[in-house]
Amino acid sequence: MAGERRLRILDLLGIGGTSGSETKRLCEVCAEATGTTGAGIMLMAGDVPRGSVCTTDDVSDLIEQLQYDLGEGPCVDAYQDDRPVLEPDLARPRTPRWPAFSGPAVEAGARAVFGFPLQVGAARLGALNLYCERPGELTDDQHADALVMADVAAQAVLVLQAGAPAGRLAGELEAGSDFHYVVHQAAGMVAAQLETSVGQALVRLRAYAFGNDRKLAEVAADVVSRKLRFDADSGEKDPRP
């Protein structure tokens, strides 16, 4: 019964975690309650990822990074289609999807990935990302737990934000989060270098990272530390000798 599932999850949340961050604990409970290897909470807006509130481990962190960099993956689909997205065998999917996302995710150890929309009423926040290190379907029980967990997580995010000063992100949401600020700093720099909009600069940064098989965050860090410049005439330049 949904009420009992909720109680069990709230009970898990109440047990003092080892981590200091409330959202980190929330992510850990998402994985524990659903019996999956790891979990992450991704915020989205306007059909694109904004960043992670929290992730349980390096693999779930990478799953979220890849989706932010590439704009494809289970969370992106779950949010856009407004329904759970289940891929029980990412290495051998029944219907191939996410061509750029799947390879690196499998290589990192995610053999099954699941995205569940995060919403409260009509308010859509993003998606809960779950992964397993072994391929396999979620059992009916796990699926039901994930639905309740997504509901609890969405409410928890909003409850945390409710305490924030006007116009500011709640400190509890900021702690342990990754909203890719360096990427936006780099976009501002590249926009100035190319005399273009920041939106266009973000597209160029993403294209460069994808074309050079690098993480967007690393490319952005190179721009900010002035190891990499974008040039309107001749493409990208490495100013190092």
């Binding site: 807006a45 409260v120 409710a162 924030a164 949401l173 700093q185 780099a186 976009a187 926009a191």
Partner: peptide, 21 residues
Amino acid sequence: LNEQLNHALNSRIVIEQAKGM
């Protein structure tokens, strides 16, 4: 609350972009 959250994130992002510029 969700609108406030989005607004706060948008503000933060635009500040980072302006810093870069």
